[in-house]
Amino acid sequence: MSDVTFSVNESTFKAVFNKAYPGKKLNFNESGSKVLVWLGVEGEIHIEGAGGIEFEDGNTFLLKELEIGWDKLILRLGLDVPNVEIGKFCLLRMPRSIPFWGDAPFLGDECLVEFPGVTLFTGKPDIGPFKLNLNAIIPYIVTEIGGRYFIYINKEKDSSGKFYQMVHAKPTAVDVDPISISDTMGKLPAIIQGGIYYAASQMIKYIPQTWMVDVVLSFLGFPTLTAFLLDLLDIHDDVEDWLMDVLNVSIGIDNVLYQLIFQEMLESKELFKIEDPYPFIDAKTLDVSDFGGYKTTPAGSTFELPAITAPVTDAAVEFAEDNMFIRFNFGI
């Protein structure tokens, strides 16, 4: 039997766990690419707390649902469009003969207006990167994260220099599912379309001969630059599918979140701490005149009584019977 036993149940442990992981902002900035398209994502999340904790016998517990709050989600897109080269051709040719007139008096069969020929989309990338601000859909992002943690107790010094037996929870595995979006408000298509329109307008500003672009696009079968960009980005009817594919496959956002959360939890502070040495009587200021028999009589009217303590030994922590038990002895 240990000298001292403390235990806490799952709900109290969860409350303590949620105090130990405050809403610190975690930023990430990742990118990936696929054919023609360069993709990047800027995001900011914070850990809100554990939704469900289940103790396992031994020294591990399951965190069944880690609640994440999204603070920022911005998609960055760049397009490296293949060069489109259109050679010279005649837009308006002088006819060889003029009805009721006969042969053209001059320039017969000569080209009056010639398309000069052009090579479009020579930039690297040609478009962007431009930003698609997805903050408006943050409330509808579904992030499912779980994990298994182990607990241990260790003697450590805190920032004030005092030593404690500290109980920590460290992740052994964090499981992040691909994120999904529950676009219940149907905002996503409008957000994506708006972003593409904006990108197209920005691009046109930097192409001096925009009429040429229209010509080229008509050759390619697209009525507008926006339609062309949507096609290049492979955005069709199901915008939600497209976005999930970008985030989960092209960017690998689940892996990004895994790294972020795992690291944050490794660095998290202790859940519980027990002073070591353990104070039975705290240090205090006392009046000299209330006591006697000093080794050396204090000079002033008060003196500092040191804390009466004992070292903590055999500290152990484990889960059993749906409780976390901390046990230790006094080294006296």
Binding site: M1, S2, D3, V4, T5, F6, S7, V8, N9, S11, T12, F280, I281, I308, A310, N323, N329, F330, I332
Partner: peptide, 20 residues
């Protein structure tokens, strides 16, 4: 059941008394 539980043995208290 309770949220928190604590126990101390009489042997520990005895040693604390002696040490104090």
């Amino acid at each position: 059941m309770s949220d928190v539980y604590g126990a101390i043995s009489d042997d520990a208290i005895q040693r604390i008394i002696n040490d104090t």
